[in-house]
């Protein structure tokens, strides 16, 4: 095999600004999405995810401009999630320069939306984001509203259904681990990754660089997403790649 595993920094964007305290030693404006994206690009990030956490629809237009700006200067794949409710939202983000969109709550409310989106734009740009919580031994359930609202839907069955509806990739977040720095929920990640034929991105809980490697080796993830471990300048993406490579994982080097 020689397809590399991917490292994906995730940026929360509110009204056009990166929030949750991104800190680089020598960056001029830590809230500027273009500056932050450029920095991760230089470090060797394989993709970037922008999560639009803006509540109002007025500010959604701002996100379109953020994507346009970043896509003009950073030439790696970009995924935009948050607030994708209509096919027209997807069209706008792709036209702005996004390569993929993440669909979460809208998929839960209306699974057919995923089928329509994949038929219109192709599976390659439809990422279904799944927020799951453990509800029993080897059982996880889908939650919405930032992990507050249970849906009664089994996470593994849901992932299989979304893949069969045309999702090209699954972004899997453990709500139990999110923000804990205890590492990914590896049993959940592995259960989903082995159940679906499409790539799975592990998310939620990274505290050390070894957690990233664990996500691939034990969780069988195709890509690993992290936020704070990179934002606060504790670790660079290159350091993460070095640790993962040392554990035998195939990674992309930065040279041409």
């Amino acid at each position: 095999m020689s397809l590399a595993k991917r490292i994906i920094p995730c940026l929360d964007v509110d009204n056009g600004r990166v929030v949750k305290g991104v800190q680089f030693v020598d960056i001029l404006d830590a809230g500027d999405p273009v500056e932050v994206a450029r920095r991760y690009d230089e470090q060797g990030a394989d993709e970037l995810v922008f999560l639009d956490i803006t509540a109002s629809s007025d500010d959604r237009e701002t996100m379109v401009h953020v994507v346009e700006e970043v896509a003009s200067q950073v030439f790696i794949p970009l995924t935009v999630g948050g607030g994708i409710r209509e096919l027209s939202d997807i069209r706008r983000m792709l036209n702005a320069g996004a390569d993929k969109v993440g669909i979460n709550t809208t998929a839960v409310n209306n699974p057919e939306f995923v089928r329509q989106a994949a038929a219109r734009f192709g599976s390659q740009c439809i990422v279904v984001a799944i927020d799951a919580k453990q509800v029993g031994d080897g059982r996880w359930e889908i939650f919405t509203h930032g992990g507050r609202k249970p849906t009664g839907i089994d996470a593994v069955e849901w992932a299989e259904k979304m893949a069969s509806f045309g999702a090209g990739e699954i972004l899997l977040t453990s709500m139990d681990r999110d923000g804990t720095r205890d590492g990914y929920d590896l049993a959940l990640t592995r259960a989903i990754s082995e159940a679906v034929a499409v790539p799975v991105i592990a998310s939620g809980g990274v505290g050390t660089l070894d957690h990233l490697a664990d996500g691939v080796i034990e969780g069988r993830a195709d890509a690993v997403l992290a936020a704070s471990i990179f934002h606060f300048g504790h670790h660079t993406v290159q350091e993460a790649k070095d640790v993962m490579s040392a554990r035998g994982i195939e990674m992309r080097a930065l040279d041409v």
Binding site: S2, L3, R6, D46, D222, A223, R252, V256
Partner: peptide
């Protein structure tokens, strides 16, 4: 275990010389 779509950074092995490969290392991703 191989996923479809084939998604991510993979190696491109040049099987013959071509001006389009100028400055691009063999097996670049």
């Amino acid at each position: 275990a191989l996923k479809v779509p084939h998604m991510g950074w993979n190696q491109v092995h040049q099987v013959k010389p071509h001006p389009m490969w100028q400055g691009i290392r063999q097996d670049s991703r």
